[in-house]
Amino acid sequence: MSAELLNVTNLVKNFELRVNNGARRKKRIVQAVTNVSFSLGKGETLGLVGESGSGKTTVGRCVLRLIEPTSGSVEFEGQDLGSLKFEELRALRRKMQIVFQDPFASLDPKMTVGASISEPLIVQGVPGDHTDKVIELLELVGLSADHAQRFPHEFSGGQRQRIGVARALALNPALIILDEPVSALDVSIQAGVVNLFEDLQSRLGMSYIFIAHDLSVVRHIADRVAVMYLGKIVEIGEQEAVYEHPTHPYTKALLSAVPLPDPKTERARTRIMLEGDVPSPVNPPSGCRFRTRCWKAQDVCAQEEPMLTVRPSGQMSACHFPES
């Protein structure tokens, strides 16, 4: 692995929730992200997986400082983003971009595609005429020069997502956060967009944080994977280690819950059925947050929070009774 591009240390994000309960008003804290640490190398792809409410999107937004973390540090190319002045942060932002899930909502319907793609260049004050750059970007994502004059409604979902990618690429970023970038696309279209991400990375060498709930896509694209549950990373490591030898019970259950497109494998598989739902992040369980749904839970799990520990297959997981 090459030099680290990004170092996230003990990231915490709490949201304040105002509950209006008839006459009384209460304040509650939603612990969306708790003590998340990870690093990302240059040209590397980190998959961030977890169910809804696991905090994966919040992590992505804290990294870009689209929302202000409660505590913890995010270092990008050695600079602590929290210590930067507004103008400095703004200058650094050109190296960090994001592609959102919904290609229908993330493009302005009243702007031509060309105007949408050149907007980041204008915002960042890149001088000159951007026509050639827009054409270059459109071709880079598999669209053509004459698409620049058209409007978003003239494009299919897959094409709109490509436009969003072209816009993210405009400033030659070193990091792109892909937040569920293929979830809204049809199956036959997904594959082409995933291939595009891979091609762009091998040509331009940027790093990705790929946030998704689809574990098969993450397995395909990620070098390393972090599994989140209720705001914490429960397992993190090389893609192959995590998928082939999951050591956290939650990872194991999550992987076994994913239906595979192969009837013979499906019949032969033993599945771990988790009971119930993810608990509320307003009042997460003490100790290990997964213990309320874990079949291995003992008294110690309620009292003592397990720390991320290196396992024989190379990854780290936070569990008192890891799978072997």
Partner: peptide, 20 residues
């Protein structure tokens, strides 16, 4: 459709060309 799905192993995905 079946060929476009990601499966274990790092072979390149095969999308269906065009769109619906």
């Amino acid at each position: 459709l079946l060929a476009s799905l990601p499966r274990p192993g790092k072979q390149r995905l095969k999308p269906i060309t065009g769109f619906p």
